[in-house]
Design a binder for these strands. Structure first.
Lengths: 348, 348
DNA sequence: TCGCGTTCTTGCAACGTTGGAAGGCAGTCA
DNA sequence: TGACTGCCTTCCAACGTTGCAAGAACGCGA
C-alpha cells in the first residue's frame, strides 16, 4: 500500500545550495559563487541563478557557513539583569552597535550570582560564540584571570583590574568625588552613602570606588568621615533603597543629603523620605548615579551622574572587534567619566 | 633559518574531538560517546577519556553539533526596544524561561520601524535560529501572513489577528474598559485618552483596542464620547506623554482624568501636570498600563493595569517549544488579561 | 587544424560532529 | 579447536558551506 503523501504543514526542509543548483542545472559551487558575489560567473548565468534563488527563497544556512569559516558572528552578552534601566539601556545600545558591525548579541542574565558568573567565565558548555562582553559583579578577579576559554572577552564596568583582559571601565572614584562635592557645595554636611555592599567580606570594586570618591570629597572639605553614614544594602534596587533610607533616618535623623549608589536606590530613597513626611530637597537632598531616563521625569527630578552608555557600547565593541580581527597585543583599557546633571533633588 | 616558535597569545585553535581522541589513543567516536553519555564504552575507558577531556578543556563545538542535528537551540527575539521598561522586563523573563528550556535568545531591536520589522518577518538573511518570538508594531498583518520563512514564530502582543500564527495576546479592550471604569467610579467624567497613534492612517491593534475599551466604559456609564479627548502621540515615551499632556490641558483645561496608553506616557503626563501647577490626583487623576516597577515608587505612586510578563513569557515559550518539538496543528492563541492596581494617582 | 590563453564551471576536500554499520576481541560452550 | 555470542571500538557517511585546484569551453592567432 503506497503511503499517502499528505503535504505536511510542518517545517519543510529549507532550501539548500544543492536544491538551487539542481533547479538551475549548474553546480553547487557556481551557486555559492553567485551568493557570495565571487568572480568567474557569466552575467547571464548569474542572473539565472539569482532568479532561482529568489524563487526557492534560498538563504544560506548559517551553520554550514560558519562551520566552514570557523566563526559564528555571535557574541555573548552577560550582565546581571535586563530589567534594571542601566543595564537595559546598555544592552540596547550594545545590540545596535553590534548590529552595525555585523555581529549579533546573545543574552545571558547572571543576576550577579557567583555561580552563574562562574559559568560565564568558564565558557559556555557548548562553543558557539566568537566573543564575550561581560559585566560581572561577584566573581573574584583572580578566578576570571584563570579562565581557560580562549574566546576574546571584554569586561564592562569597574570590575576587572589586573585581570589582563580588555576593559571598558568607569572612573567611579572621580564620580563619587564629584557627586559629593556637589552636595557639599550646596551646603550639605551630613551626607550618607546608601548602597554599600559586600561579597564574601569584600567590597566589589564599583562600591569601593564610589565610597573612596565620597571620602575623598569629604576629606577635601575637611568634613569628618562618619562610618555610620555608609549604609549597606543587599541589592541595588528601589525596594532596598527605600528600606535603607527608612533605617538611615531612624538611626540618623540629622542627615541632610543622600548619595545613592545608583538611580534606582535614589528613587527608593525619595519614596521612603516622602513616606516619612520629609521634603526633597529642602530636608534631604538626594543624588543618584546613571542618569536613567526616568530621572528627568520623577518628582522631584533627580540629580544624577550621567554615564554615556552609547560611548561605552562603542568602546566595548571596538575592543572586541579588534580582537576578532586578530589583534594580539596587550590588553587595553578605556575609561568613561561621569558627568553631573543637576536637577531638582539637590536644589537649594 | 628556523622560524622561532613564539607561542602566540592569540586565540589558539580550540580543542576538538580529534585532539582528545589522539591524546587518549582512542577513536573520535569513542570520545563522542563519552561526551554524550552513550553506551558501549567500558567504565575505565570512560574515566580515562573524561580525564583527557578535562585536561584539554574540551567543549563540543556548537556549530558542528548543530550542523549534524539540524538545529541550533537559538531563538530570535525581535522587539521594538529594550530600553522601555515593559519590553525590558519581558525580555528579561523570556531570557530566563528560554534558558530553562535549553534555548538561548538572540536579540534584535526594530524600534517599531516598518522596514526593520519587514526584515524580521522575511527571515534573517542567514538561517541560524530555530524559532522567532516577535512583537511587531507597524507591520501590516497581511504582509506577515505571506512570510515564506518556515521557522516557527510566536507573536506577542495585540498584533497578529488573522495571521495564522501562534500568539500570546493581551485583551486590551477589557483592559481599557477596566481602567476607565475605575476612573468613572472615582467620579471622574472628563477623561482623556493619551496615546492614540496611526500608521499609514490605521491604528495599530493595541491602540484600537484600548480606545475601544475606553469607549465601551464611557458608553456603559452614559458619558458622551468626545473625540477631542483622544490625544495622539508620535511615540509612547515619557517625553511625548509630557508634550501631549501640555497640549491637552491647553485645549481642554476641564479634563479631570487621563488614561495613558502606558506607564511611560503616564509618567510624562504627571511630570507635565506638575509643571503646570496641577495636582495629581486632586485636579487630574492619572492611570497607566503595564505596571512597571517604577509605578510603585513614583510620586504620586501610579495606578496602572498590570500585565503578567512572566506569564506571557511562559506562554510564548510553551507555544514555541511545542512547534520545535514538531507540533503541527492549527495556530493557538493564549490571552493575558490585565489586573488593575490602584495607587495614589487615582485616589479620591 | 592546432595550440594557447582566457574565461567560466565543476569536483574535491575540509570544517566538527553524530548515527548506523561494520569490525575486532575475548570469553563461553560444544 | 572452532563457532558463537556479546561487548567494545572503529569506520563511514552525512549535515551545508566554501577555498583550491583542476577541468571544460571558447576565441583567437599561427
Amino acid at each position: 500500500m503506497p503511503s499517502s503523501p499528505v503535504p505536511s504543514r510542518a517545517t519543510p526542509r529549507p532550501t539548500t545550495l544543492r536544491d538551487v543548483a539542481e533547479a538551475a542545472g549548474v553546480s553547487i559551487k557556481t551557486v555559492s559563487n553567485v551568493v557570495n558575489d565571487h568572480p568567474h560567473v557569466r552575467p547571464e548565468m548569474r542572473e539565472k541563478v539569482k532568479a532561482f534563488i529568489a524563487e526557492l527563497d534560498y538563504r544560506p544556512n548559517g551553520i554550514g557557513r560558519q562551520l566552514r569559516q570557523g566563526r559564528t558572528g555571535l557574541v555573548a552578552l552577560a550582565l546581571p539583569d535586563l530589567t534594571s534601566p542601566y543595564y537595559g539601556e546598555l544592552a540596547s545600545t550594545l545590540v545596535d552597535v553590534a548590529r552595525e558591525r555585523g555581529l549579533t548579541l546573545l543574552v545571558e542574565q547572571t543576576d550577579g550570582d557567583l555561580d552563574r558568573e562562574r559559568e560565564v567565565a568558564t565558557g559556555f558548555p557548548v562553543r558557539l560564540v566568537d566573543g564575550l562582553i561581560f559585566a560581572p559583579q561577584s566573581l573574584p578577579v583572580d578566578e576570571f584571570k584563570q579562565r581557560r576559554d580562549t574566546t576574546p572577552a571584554v569586561l564592562v564596568g569597574e570590575y576587572g583590574e589586573g585581570s589582563g583582559f580588555d576593559r571598558v571601565t568607569i572612573d567611579s572614584v572621580d564620580l563619587g568625588d564629584r557627586a559629593v562635592r556637589h552636595l557639599l557645595e550646596r551646603g550639605r554636611r551630613t551626607i550618607a552613602f546608601v548602597g554599600d555592599k559586600h561579597r564574601d567580606a569584600v567590597r566589589p570594586p564599583v562600591v569601593a570606588q564610589r565610597i573612596e570618591g565620597y571620602r575623598r570629597a569629604l576629606r577635601r572639605a575637611r568634613v569628618p568621615f562618619d562610618p555610620e553614614l555608609v549604609r549597606p544594602l543587599a541589592e541595588w534596587t528601589r525596594r532596598d533603597g527605600a528600606e535603607g533610607a527608612t533605617a538611615l533616618l531612624r538611626d540618623r535623623p540629622d542627615v541632610d543629603a543622600v548619595f545613592a549608589a545608583n538611580d534606582l536606590i535614589a528613587f527608593g530613597v525619595v519614596h521612603a523620605l516622602r513616606g516619612l513626611g520629609l521634603r526633597v530637597p529642602q530636608d534631604v537632598a538626594v543624588l543618584g548615579v546613571d542618569d536613567v531616563e526616568q530621572a528627568q521625569y520623577s518628582a522631584p527630578t533627580l540629580t544624577s551622574v550621567a554615564l554615556d552608555r552609547s560611548e561605552m557600547a562603542e568602546m566595548a565593541l571596538r575592543l572586541l572587534s579588534d580582537r576578532l580581527a586578530g589583534y594580539d597585543g596587550p590588553e587595553r583599557l578605556l575609561t568613561v567619566t561621569g558627568r553631573l546633571v543637576v536637577r531638582e533633588s539637590t536644589a537649594g
